[in-house]
C-alpha cells in the first residue's frame, strides 16, 4: 500500500520549497494569534504573581489594573480565535490534531533554506571559537 502522496517526501523527489505550501497567509495569521495568546497568558501570570509580592497600594492599583486589562484582552482574543476556528476549547481532539498539523508544517518551513542572502552574523564579529 504505497501512496506516493503520503511518502516521506511528498514533493515527487524534489526538495520542498516555500511555494509548495498553500494558504501561508492564513497560517501566518493563525500562528501570530497563537503567539499573541501565549504572550497574553504569560502577562496574566506575571501580573498575578507580581501582585502577590507587592504591598504598596499605588503599586497594587497599577498592577491590578494591568492584570484586569490582560484578562479582558484574553477574553476577546480567545473568542476571536474560536470564531476563526483557530481554537477549539470544547473539542480537545480537534485541537490536538490541528496543533500537531501546524507543528509539522512549521517544522517543514523552518527547515527550508530561507534567508540565505542575508548577512552571515557569525562572520561579522570576531568570535573566540567558531562552531564547526
Amino acid at each position: 500500500m504505497t501512496d506516493p502522496g503520503t511518502n516521506a517526501n511528498p514533493n515527487m523527489g524534489k526538495p520542498l520549497d516555500i511555494a509548495d505550501f498553500t494558504d501561508l497567509i492564513g497560517f501566518a495569521n493563525a500562528s501570530a494569534a497563537l503567539e499573541f495568546l501565549i504572550t497574553v497568558k504569560s502577562g496574566i501570570r506575571n501580573a498575578a504573581m507580581s501582585l502577590t509580592e507587592c504591598a504598596t497600594p499605588e503599586v497594587r492599583a497599577v498592577v491590578r489594573n494591568q492584570l484586569f486589562q490582560a484578562l479582558d484582552m484574553h477574553e476577546k482574543l480567545s473568542q476571536l480565535m474560536i470564531d476563526k476556528g483557530w481554537l477549539h476549547p470544547y473539542n480537545p481532539g480537534e485541537q490536538i490534531q490541528m496543533d500537531a498539523k501546524s507543528a509539522q508544517k512549521t517544522a517543514e518551513i523552518a527547515k527550508l533554506p530561507l534567508f540565505k542572502d542575508r548577512t552571515k552574523v557569525l562572520e561579522t564579529f570576531d568570535t573566540p571559537q567558531r562552531p564547526h
Binding site: 497567509i25 501566518a28 495569521n29 501570530a32 494569534a33 503567539e35 499573541f36 504572550t39 497574553v40 502577562g43 484582552m73 476577546k76 482574543l77 476571536l80 476563526k84
Partner: peptide, 24 residues
C-alpha cells in the same frame, strides 16, 4: 510585549486580529 505587538502588526492580515494587536 510592545516590540512583539509592533512586529506582529506587520505580519497579520486579518482585520479583526490586527485591531486586537493594535489595541494591545
Amino acid at each position: 510585549c510592545a516590540a512583539k505587538a509592533k512586529a506582529i502588526d506587520g505580519l497579520v492580515t486579518d482585520e479583526q486580529l490586527k485591531a486586537l494587536v493594535q489595541q494591545d
